[in-house]
Design a protein around this nucleic acid. Structure first.
Lengths: 190, 190
DNA sequence: AGTATAACGGAGGTACCCCTCCGGTTCTAG
DNA sequence: CTAGAACCGGAGGGGTACCTCCGTTATACT
């Protein structure tokens, strides 16, 4: 029950041993996820502690820097994204790609951060980028291989396009899905 | 030489009468444009005053609230956008629409704000929205009328899509143009 | 040139956020 | 059950941004 790290992404975030500490840890992660989703990567740490019903000291003990906290949330979502890529793997190539990208847009917490920081050069982001590309690129290649995606474009193009849409405001879920579908139609050869 | 307001958008921003005051006013607008482009709508007002080489008091005299300053920059860009719509009016329908949208993406200062606040309900934003729609909708309708744009989509969809792309990070100008072109291809009937 | 006055600019009060530190509390292992 | 390690939380110092106020300065008009 040591729970050293949560992912294979190389950034170690330790989950505490004691039960109360673990509760607080999880509450903080949840609150941070909400706060980042709402206010972007610059959300107030004191606000996050408040939301989690925890003292500011506790936040800093678990996550010494803002970056540590942000990374934990961010990496959690990247992981989910990687898992999602596995889940869609047995769909037909185009459906697999589109479903994965729809899922991509669906994750909420670090949406804004993802495109704010997509081309930043911290070690951590490049690791995450690698992971994301590792998960999505095969789907893209496969779709391209069977002729479902035009060949004059790259996975990077697509990811940035979708990241942009991820950050845009929509009146409702339906519009977001519709618009993403629209944009992705541009990927298909004509 | 009174220069009461700068636009027909209904929000009055007075340009001062005295020469020194007018210099400062313009410097502030320029600095604000840069600052908003760089740091988003939450840029520091004191930083803007510093950039403009002006005391903070002068900033507040010209723009009593942050909103006043932001609106002035924002409206300036909306105006440019409306003018651009006139300029492209004599291109073929699809080219007109695409050119206008490319121009849309090109404006820098309030990029981030536009999609951050596209569906906010302040009086000022709805005015701006109206103006933007007034300028762009005809281009869209025309393109749809001649069969250059699929009919199962709306101008609002397109505007939000493009707003999203506007905010996304790209490695260079070329990629942004390429990706926008890609996304817009999804608009064409197949 | 001289004067009335519009405009300047920055000091400083208020508020918020960051982060550290440590006395008190709670859990777990034995 | 108990002892001590692990953990808690918030007070408080330092910093920055917001905004007001007013003594000083530049402009326009006669």
């Amino acid at each position: 029950m040591t729970d050293n790290t949560r992912s294979g992404l190389g950034v170690a975030v330790k989950r505490p041993h004691r039960a109360d500490a673990r509760r607080n840890f999880d509450a903080l992660l949840g609150a941070a996820r909400d706060a980042f989703a709402q206010n972007g990567a610059g959300a107030s740490l004191e606000d996050i502690a408040r939301r989690a019903g925890v003292g500011i000291g506790t936040l800093y003990r678990n996550f010494p820097t803002r970056q540590d906290l942000f990374d934990s949330v961010y990496l959690g979502e990247i992981e989910e994204l990687c898992e999602a890529a596995v889940q869609v793997a047995d769909l037909p190539p185009w459906e697999a790609l589109e479903t994965w990208l729809q899922r991509f847009v669906g994750y909420a917490a670090t949406k804004r951060a993802i495109y704010e920081e997509l081309n930043r050069d911290s070690e951590m982001f490049s690791k995450a980028r690698e992971a994301m590309y590792g998960a999505g690129q095969p789907l893209f290649d496969q779709a391209q291989a069977v002729g479902a995606v035009r060949t004059d474009t790259t996975f990077d193009d697509v990811l940035r396009m979708v990241s942009g849409l991820t950050g845009a405001g929509f009146v409702d879920e339906a519009q977001r899905t519709r618009v993403l579908h629209l944009a992705l139609d541009g990927l298909r050869p004509r």
